[in-house]
Design a protein around this nucleic acid. Sequence first.
DNA 1: AACATTGATTTCTCTAGAGAAGTCCCGCAA
DNA 2: TTGCGGGACTTCTCTAGAGAAATCAATGTT
Lengths: 250, 250
Amino acid sequence: MMESPVPHEPPIYRRIADRLRQAILAGDLRDGDRLPGENALMSEHGIARATARQALAVLINEGLAVPKRGSGVYVRRFRPIRRHGSRRLSREQWGAGRAIWDSDTSGRPYTVDDLTITREPAADEAARVLDCEEVWVRRRRYSVDGRPVQLAASHFPALLVADTPIVVPDTGPGGVYARLRDLGHAPAHFTEEVRARMPTPEESEKLGLPAGTPVIVVCRAAYAAGGTAVELNKMIMDAASYVLQYDFDA
Amino acid sequence: MMESPVPHEPPIYRRIADRLRQAILAGDLRDGDRLPGENALMSEHGIARATARQALAVLINEGLAVPKRGSGVYVRRFRPIRRHGSRRLSREQWGAGRAIWDSDTSGRPYTVDDLTITREPAADEAARVLDCEEVWVRRRRYSVDGRPVQLAASHFPALLVADTPIVVPDTGPGGVYARLRDLGHAPAHFTEEVRARMPTPEESEKLGLPAGTPVIVVCRAAYAAGGTAVELNKMIMDAASYVLQYDFDA
DNA sequence: AACATTGATTTCTCTAGAGAAGTCCCGCAA
DNA sequence: TTGCGGGACTTCTCTAGAGAAATCAATGTT
């Protein structure tokens, strides 16, 4: 026998989620609005607590809502920072003594957290790209408007940067790229690899991510004029906080 | 009074998820391996079904595992397609009569699904970027290895492309960019905006995405030499299937 | 050899209930 | 006005159980 060709009616929790999603996307529920909680859904639809939670979990995992324990579930906004790829790395900018990050936040203030500088053996990608066994790593966290938005780890070949301003907290005007230039290894070419995935619990904790928020992983390699790799920067960004922009000619 | 400074012990479901995640990341559980199901976790840890499900849901939402109804929960791989940004759009490639996608899949075969070509009023982004009220839209779905990986919708100003090969299914060698060139509107500059988020149910269904897989949204605008926008292409990609690569000079 | 059926296994959906933990606001005291 | 309890409310975690629906392999039939 053939199966009934009628598509199954979706389960209750999904129908409720659909209804709420529509209200959000249509604008009936906006930005920080509170949506009906477990108890409201239970009495409204005559369902069990677990079912109401499941409906809300759908929206939370889609990134459309954020639960606040003891308070309620709220609609979530997408108000990203624009990060420029090629433009931000033009020589004019870092050559003039400006930190790269300035153009990232379009003037919004940012803070750097948890800066650590360590020397360590190079792991997988770093070893392969930088072609060395020991690296110096600058790890830090960026926050905008008091909220953490990015984790970054810059890797440098140990032999190249030992005893330079690159391995101290304050790198001076222009940042590490200006210092690489001073060393005669000015970056001339960049390659960025971009992917997206769900965060690990560690990333989730460090970035304070609610459930349903992916991260964007950008891995950027900087090459000097001769073609040798001088930096590998691995960035983990809150996907709800970023739009990446790349400009290029045909 | 101050709270106890001791961080709370995580709940049971989370501890189980942590243990399984570690096994996956350490390589004890690999690619398509089956991990302990609801019943196994229930008897193994002496917990209720809902709790076991919650533990598995954590891994599923992280994209580390895929549930197969009636069969089990399996470890999930990440084996992406490399998509080149700037390089793939160089004039040499599409000028020589090659479709863009060729370089995307590095030679892996792809298929195009569900091609629809419609004329419609321009919505938000398209209206703003293309600066017109009516657009022709080419929507299609790309599959690699039989699995859908991308939804794409190319928008063209209606006045520009009416009665051209751009509004018929087969655009000929070189694709739409070669045809735009024939019309005297060869793309000279591109801007791509990249973001990531969880998929809508519709996207999830069209791409066959398991829970826990984000999508990468790429919005690409193509500009002719004079600076007028000639195309806006909105792409929705399965994040587990793609790595985007951008190359640029300092 | 090809096909249909059956049964065991597994995930999926849902009910009913309970206590823990966090948030918020109102009223009372200083 | 300010600060501090308390209580109401909310989300979070978990137990116990049951039937639906899909998968898969073995078995029997044509």
